[in-house]
Write a protein that binds this DNA or RNA. Structure first.
Lengths: 255, 255
DNA sequence: TAGTGGTCTAGACCACCTC
DNA sequence: AGGTGGTCTAGACCACTAC
């Protein structure tokens, strides 16, 4: 018989009760002291069990308040439509989608000149230390941190499109602005990965332990070369990415 | 001044040393006892710090061996080509890609009849309790668990395509087989999310704490209706998904 | 057998939230 | 003030790996 350690028994028992609805999303778990009595374990052992659930993203704890079962409402992003090739737009698609979902979007924005980080330089096909324009966006939905988005433009493009260095939004959208200058995005290459957040990411996105981030790197191409590289970091518990490929005329649009 | 708790100082110090190459991927960290001396902290405090790094996926521990810095080689899956509409193929694309990378693929496979789980029923647009054929695949690369893949086919399709219930592989590929019967997949809808693994997923994929899973749900459509729903569960530390959209003729294929 | 991490306890004190 | 979780300690014993 595989005897589980006590703290795992605690975690498993609580997980079952969360799954079967004893503790529904948003409700509070019993206090450590109560659980300690119930499982005949020391407070530290109960804490070890609870910590497992926290790192698995099932519950979150806060000092003075207790442990609360997490609840998510995921936001669905259609990445194959997000910046439609025929209707190029900037971050506007984000505001539009969020508003359409009845939520309130907000963001902070800044522009910097930066030497290209290695992975960006590779994707933009420029030298690793060459200058790029970084347009950085920190996005919130109903004041909850949602994602960060960092778009790098190569130096040669800035010469053609000086407004890229303007500190504010470009009203008509950067994609539109660039297209008007003869630099049209005709394709994208998307890379999607996941991992646990770095301390910096955890701070910006205000994620606790147990919530991974979804990393989305989009490299945009003209018919000649890469013209931008956008790295978006999503809270993994609040976001889903969708792609449409081929003919989907048979699809019910129920969502 | 924001004084960090001691176990965070331990974690931060070790993280810096991992980042700057003091402890390169694959190397071992000092023992808990040594770290305890170095940081003038109790063994439990050091363990709390190390546990942070473990849940962040930076290091892995094993009894009797110590803590080892994790190393990853990510496998890149081109999801927009994986089952090319013009060259339909089954799991073969997986073996082909893996072999091309100089790795050795293997898999276990089984077929079951199952009532449609809720999320599958929605996507296949069938009743929630209707029967589906489940073709399930557990994939390994060089004997490391890589992903699980569960494809559900609706009951009405099985009537047309009885070989779907055959327990073995379909030699020419299921997509090909279905196309020959007049059921052609003309489009896909892909959904990508991430979260921490359930205990069951952790067991199948042999992931330790701190490694999220990447969930990929692909619903395939004929020109009339959905014909299959495939849910793939990847180890997030070993996999990346790529999509190509639009015209990428300018892209250097360096990988 | 020696050294490593894994489990567990009992108790102390602190920080935060609610009343 | 009282209850909650957060931090930290000191020590015990167990399980696994290497030699």
């Amino acid at each position: 018989m595989n005897k589980q350690p006590k703290y795992r028994q605690v975690a498993d028992a609580l997980r079952r009760e969360i799954d079967n609805g004893t503790y529904p999303p948003g409700s509070r778990l019993p206090s450590e002291a109560e659980l300690s009595t119930r499982f005949d374990a020391s407070r530290n052992t109960v804490r070890a069990g609870l910590n497992l659930l926290v790192t698995q993203g099932l519950v979150a704890s806060s000092q003075g308040l207790g442990y609360q079962v997490t609840k998510h409402e995921v936001f669905k992003l259609n990445a194959s439509r997000f910046e439609n090739l025929t209707f190029p737009q900037n971050g506007d698609a984000y505001s539009t989608d969020v508003t359409a979902a009845g939520r309130r979007p907000s963001q902070t924005f800044r522009v910097e000149l930066q030497p290209a980080p290695k992975h960006v330089a590779e994707r933009l096909e420029v030298a690793a230390d060459s200058t790029t324009v970084l347009r950085f966006c920190h996005r919130f939905v109903d004041d909850v941190p949602w994602s960060t988005q960092a778009t790098h433009y190569p130096e040669w493009l800035v010469a053609k499109a000086p407004r890229l260095t303007e500190p504010g939004d470009i009203a008509e959208g950067t994609t539109r602005y660039l297209a008007d200058l003869g630099v049209t995005q005709v394709g994208y290459f998307d890379e999607i990965t996941t991992r646990m957040p770095t301390p910096e990411e955890a701070r910006l996105l205000e994620v606790g332990a147990g919530v991974p981030v979804l990393l989305w790197t989009r490299t945009g191409y003209s018919d000649e070369r890469p013209i931008r590289c956008t790295v978006t970091t999503f809270r993994g518990d609040l976001n889903q990415m969708n792609y449409e490929i081929g003919d989907l005329s048979a699809r019910e649009v129920s969502e």
